[in-house]
Amino acid sequence: MSSPYCCPHCKTNRTRFNVINQVATPVRMDAHSGEITKSDQEALDAFHMPYKGPTVKVQCATCGLVEDEKMFVQFGAMPR
């Protein structure tokens, strides 16, 4: 987060953002009741793919767009 941001949607906001930290928790649910039967590392088995998405998302506090941090960084590096 040491790079300047610019919203790729409204293209004017360079100062107001919400940083969203994503924490994925693997769970195993009962198919009929929806009750969680296992959580955390217990739920990972051979058929449970671990989360590989971004750990940080950014929301523009002007227009509300939520995107990966890299999109805001790319637009922030562009000349004004």
Score class of each variant (00 low, 15 high):
M1G: 13
S2I: 08
S2L: 05
S3W: 11
S3E: 14
P4H: 01
Y5F: 15
Y5E: 08
Y5G: 07
C6Q: 10
C6P: 02
C6Y: 03
C7V: 04
C7E: 01
C7N: 02
H9S: 13
H9K: 13
C10N: 06
C10R: 06
K11E: 09
T12R: 08
N13R: 02
N13I: 01
N13V: 02
R14Q: 09
R14H: 08
R14L: 01
R14Y: 06
T15V: 06
R16S: 07
R16M: 06
R16F: 07
R16D: 07
R16T: 04
N18Q: 12
I20Y: 08
I20G: 08
Q22K: 15
Q22G: 09
Q22I: 15
V23S: 09
V23T: 11
A24G: 00
A24H: 07
A24R: 03
A24S: 11
T25H: 10
T25K: 13
T25F: 12
P26Y: 01
V27N: 03
V27C: 08
M29I: 12
M29E: 05
H32P: 00
H32M: 08
E35Q: 13
I36S: 06
T37V: 13
K38I: 00
S39T: 10
S39C: 09
S39N: 10
S39F: 08
D40W: 14
Q41I: 09
Q41F: 10
A43G: 06
L44E: 03
D45A: 10
D45E: 13
D45V: 15
D45Q: 11
F47L: 08
F47E: 15
F47G: 10
H48C: 11
H48N: 05
H48R: 15
M49A: 15
P50G: 04
K52R: 15
K52S: 12
K52E: 14
G53I: 03
G53Q: 06
P54H: 13
P54D: 14
P54V: 13
V56E: 08
V56T: 13
K57M: 13
K57G: 02
V58A: 05
Q59D: 01
Q59T: 04
C60R: 00
A61N: 09
A61C: 12
C63F: 02
C63I: 06
G64A: 07
L65I: 14
L65A: 11
V66H: 02
K70L: 13
K70T: 12
K70D: 14
M71I: 09
M71D: 13
M71P: 06
V73S: 02
V73G: 01
Q74Y: 05
F75D: 06
F75I: 04
G76T: 03
G76S: 05
G76R: 00
G76M: 04
A77Y: 12
A77G: 15
R80P: 05
